[in-house]
């Protein structure tokens, strides 16, 4: 039983940064903006989180810094794509290049230093319960934040007026604008939220998952997060499902190896990617449902006309 709990905990820790970054990007894309700079914002969050945590000695301040720096970095993207109407795909990719370089520059002094780790939740009695105790009451704070974020975003997008407005902008910014909605203002806020989430995900990496700073430590997780948004068909609750499938696939292959299954590790390593494709093929066969959820204006610049 203990081993099952441990495996679930490992998967949760591995999936959390993917989920957090994905839920942020989901809001961005729902507003009709495609930000391919997730990897860049994430790595900026990671270096800021580690740095602030190390310098102040408080991992909480580190997490806060990660969120702020992620948002600040996404502002650059927002100004470019929203105010200057630059191409979103190219700008997002450039943001990733810039983030990888800038984080390396900022982190030069942090290499080889042990960082602060955010403590896991501990509630006497509850956390000590068998099985559910550690799963429900004993995880790291970002895990709980990720659940809250997903629930919050689901509620916001589908149960609030503002959420409806945001979605309508993503479907047609021209009609939204005609109705007198400040398209760019919404999009600015959405992009900043996406940046904050990506920063938080980076902070989870350098403050919880592997408390240290090393260059390129995101190792492609931003890209997986982007894929998860598509996988989720832009619906918040499908994100965690995808994240956990992916995490389980990755973890399962490590266990299979430790168990001694004689299959080349490269094949096992590619399973999570293939599984994600397979599941997406299954769920996207219903064309109408997919179309309904895909923001129609995704990736198209909008400039208000006077």
């Amino acid at each position: 039983m203990d081993i099952a709990v441990n495996i679930l905990l490992t998967i949760a820790t591995a999936a959390t940064p993917l989920l957090v970054a994905a839920i942020g990007e989901l809001v961005v894309e729902r507003s009709g903006v495609l930000n391919l700079g997730v990897e860049g914002m994430m790595i900026m969050g990671a270096v800021a989180g580690f740095g602030a945590g190390y310098l102040t000695g408080s991992p909480w301040l580190g997490l806060l810094a990660a969120v702020l720096v992620g948002a600040l970095f996404s502002l650059l993207f927002a100004v470019m794509t929203l105010s200057l109407a630059t191409n979103q795909v190219a700008t997002g990719l450039s943001l990733t290049l810039l983030g990888l370089g800038l984080s390396g520059m900022m982190g030069t002094g942090f290499v080889g230093l042990p960082g602060e780790r955010l403590p896991n939740l501990y509630i006497p009695f509850l956390t000590d319960l068998p099985v559910v105790g550690r799963l429900v009451f004993g995880q790291d704070p970002v895990f709980y934040i990720s659940i809250a974020l997903i629930a919050g975003v689901a509620w916001f997008l589908f149960r609030t007026r503002t959420g409806l407005t945001l979605r309508s902008i993503g479907d047609s910014h021209t009609s939204a604008h005609a109705l007198g909605i400040h398209v760019l203002r919404y999009r600015y806020l959405a992009v900043l939220f996406g940046g904050a989430c990506a920063g938080l995900a980076g902070g989870q990496l350098s403050l919880v998952y592997t408390p240290q700073w090393v260059e390129n430590m995101t190792a492609g997780r931003g890209w997986i997060a982007l894929a998860l948004v598509v996988f989720a068909s832009w619906r918040p609750w499908r994100g965690p499902a995808g994240g956990y499938i992916f995490g389980a696939g990755r973890n399962g292959q490590l266990h299979a190896q430790a168990f001694g299954i004689p299959v080349p590790s490269q094949f096992l390593s590619s399973l999570p990617y293939l599984a994600t494709i397979a599941v997406l093929v299954l769920i996207s066969r219903n064309k109408r449902l997919t179309m309904m959820n895909t923001p129609a204006a995704l990736g198209q610049p909008f400039v208000p006309d006077r």
Binding site: T10, L205, T210, V214, M217, R250, N251, H255
Partner: peptide
């Protein structure tokens, strides 16, 4: 890949 190495250690 620090994350993957950590997961492997846990496994």
């Amino acid at each position: 890949d620090p994350g993957k190495e950590a997961d492997a250690a846990k496994a």
